[in-house]
Computed example of a mutant assay.
Amino acid sequence: MRTPQAGNPTRPPRNPPVNLPGAVLSALGILFAIFLVQEYFLSYATNLIVWRDFGFMPARYVHPLGEQDLAWLWSPVTYSLLHGGWAHIIFNSLWLAIFGAPVARRIGAVRFLALWVTSAAASAFFFAAVDWGAVAVLIGASGVVSAYMGAACRFAFAGRGGLSPYAHLNRRLTIPEVFADRTARAFVIIWLLGNLLVAVGVSLAGVSAGEIAWQAHIGGFLFGFLAFPLFDVKLPHTLGY
């Protein structure tokens, strides 16, 4: 009896245990590395300083917190790398893996990073516009994750009825086409409605407006949804783009 040899074309291909794009895996690695350092190597007092100096604060743009306070330069991005607890980072990581993966496969690592940076800033300043001058500190990647959700709505549901391994190959939908598609329309409406309910004080699954930055979520989602064509790539004509 002959044993199968290496390279036998009849042997089914081996799928990697974690089938995520490198950009998403790198992002998750950075988020968890930063969180673990804060969780296990920094004291609570030191973490307060980290959150103050790298978290986003609307008050920073009304009256500076000190003569040497330059955090207004980097905090619109660095806040998205910080998290306040295990539930916070795990929840954001799950949604990042689900919706960041098709976006990363479609636009590549460089544009994925560019979308991260710009959507983080857009989410932060939408938060600031709603609560201008607030001393509250915004941290977490949820605004960026929301932007990837909004971006995915422009292509991931096109004619597929839901996310698939090949969703990144779908053609980009126009905004009217998104709302004409039953699955995409339902996702957008339910997502926005959920955040608006939290905004008016309705607790969903035990989460209230005081515990979730719904302003950053909506700002990020709208940015990803509306600005995605600026980051998108042109697919081959044979795919109907």
Rank of each mutant, 00 (worst) to 15 (best):
L173N: 02
R14D: 06
V18L: 15
A152D: 06
R171F: 00
A59P: 02
A33S: 14
Q38E: 12
I30F: 06
A124G: 14
A213N: 12
P236I: 12
L197I: 13
G219P: 01
L204P: 01
V207C: 09
P176M: 06
A97D: 08
L235D: 04
A158D: 02
L169V: 08
L36D: 06
W132S: 09
G224Y: 08
A216G: 06
A156L: 11
W116C: 07
R154F: 00
F221N: 03
Q5G: 09
M57Y: 01
A184H: 07
A180L: 02
A120F: 09
D69E: 13
A27W: 05
V24S: 00
Q5D: 13
A151G: 11
Q215P: 06
V130I: 15
V188Y: 05
A129V: 10
G194Q: 03
W51T: 08
W72G: 03
R105C: 03
G7F: 04
R11A: 11
A87Y: 15
P229I: 03
F225M: 10
A209D: 01
H83F: 07
G29L: 01
V117C: 12
R182M: 09
G206S: 09
F35E: 01
R185H: 02
G150K: 07
L96K: 07
R2I: 03
S93P: 14
R111L: 11
F41I: 03
Y79N: 06
M57P: 00
Y166S: 14
L173P: 04
G159L: 09
A184G: 02
P13N: 04
R105P: 12
I30D: 08
E67T: 14
N47P: 02
I139C: 01
A109Y: 03
L70S: 11
Y241I: 01
T118W: 05
G201M: 05
S123E: 15
W132N: 11
Y166L: 13
I212H: 15
L226Y: 08
V198C: 10
G7K: 08
K234W: 04
T78Y: 03
I49N: 05
L28F: 05
A109T: 15
L31H: 02
L96N: 10
P102L: 08
F125S: 02
I175E: 01
W72I: 13
G85Y: 01
V145R: 02
F32T: 11
L20T: 04
V37M: 07
A124L: 02
V18I: 15
W116R: 06
S93H: 10
A128P: 13
T174N: 05
A180I: 06
F187I: 15
L226S: 04
A71F: 01
G206P: 05
G150F: 07
W86E: 09
V50I: 15
G7T: 10
G159I: 14
M149F: 15
A199N: 04
A23F: 00
H88S: 05
H168E: 14
G161C: 13
V62K: 12
L48V: 13
F228L: 08
L192N: 00
A186W: 09
R14N: 05
D69A: 12
V137W: 10
P236F: 07
Y61C: 12
L31N: 13
Y44D: 12
V233Y: 12
L197M: 14
A151K: 05
P21L: 04
F56A: 00
L96D: 09
A147S: 15
P165R: 09
L96R: 08
L28K: 00
A129L: 15
F221D: 04
A209K: 05
L226R: 11
